[in-house]
């Protein structure tokens, strides 16, 4: 199948290795991967700030670029939720409403696509480390993704997954929230990092780079040895 891979803006600019891993993993399964170069961002920052009028042109461009896609895979639960759940709402009563619904129906978050749509869990990856998994809120609660990333991690050789008590607690990123309320965002991140550290894990793995950017930023600043890594990069380790 031809997979249209939507690489979120911050993965593109800051975490290219996560995106490259996604391409390599999907191609490794024998699929054709295309990345629409015209797409920059899903429009979530203005949308979540309430500026829906400013979000629409950005989202409309995304819809336009995706309109012929067979399957859209998004490398982030958050951007996935934006397209799958919030686009239909953003365009309710607008000319693009039907298109938004159509595209939402064929859009997948990366890990869920692999497990639920492709039925694949084993990439033959090796990652001999103790890890804990952070459920990004949008993936978990908007898209109901909990099992897929864990099914994938379960097949990684040498990997030991230890669940943290606060696995489902928000890390405190929250997009523009992190900048508008930095003290709350930081407090939440500290709770998350402490819970992750309690497990004795070396890595926090997640399917959302935005959460990891926030957590890694805190860990680096505080000189903590705990590291973060995107799920796709783990699956791409040989």
């Amino acid at each position: 199948m031809t997979i249209t891979l939507f690489i979120p803006c911050f993965v593109d600019a800051l975490f290219p290795r996560a995106g490259i891993s996604m391409v390599q993993l999907l191609e490794g399964l024998g699929h054709k991967v295309v990345c629409p170069e015209e797409i920059s961002c899903c429009g979530q920052p203005p949308f979540n700030s309430g500026y829906w009028g400013e979000a629409r042109p950005v989202a409309a461009k995304v819809l336009e670029q995706l309109k012929d896609a067979e399957a859209v895979v998004i490398g982030s639960g958050s951007c996935g939720a934006m397209v799958k759940k919030f686009y239909p709402e953003l365009f309710a009563g607008k000319p693009q409403e039907e298109l938004a619904k159509k595209i939402a129906a064929r859009t997948w978050e990366f890990s869920d696509f692999i497990v639920s749509k492709l039925g694949v869990t084993d990439f033959g990856a090796k990652f001999p480390h103790k890890v804990t998994f952070h459920d990004g809120c949008h993936g978990l609660r908007e898209l109901d993704i909990k099992k897929s990333p864990r099914a994938l991690l379960a097949k990684v050789q040498g990997l030991q997954l230890v669940e943290m008590a606060e696995a489902e607690t928000c890390c405190g990123f929250g997009g523009t929230f992190a900048a508008k309320f930095p003290m709350i965002s930081t407090a939440m991140g500290d709770v998350k990092c402490a819970s992750a550290a309690e497990t004795g894990a070396e890595y926090i793995v997640s399917n959302d780079s935005s959460c990891l950017m926030h957590l890694q930023g805190l860990l680096t600043r505080q000189g903590k040895p705990l590291k973060t890594i995107h799920l796709a990069e783990v699956l791409n380790q040989r």
Binding site: D12, P16, G189, G217
Partner: peptide, 13 residues
């Protein structure tokens, strides 16, 4: 309170 990740030379695109 947080570091920013260093921007890599080569973006995904």
């Amino acid at each position: 309170t947080r570091d920013l990740p260093p921007m890599p030379k080569e973006s995904f695109k």
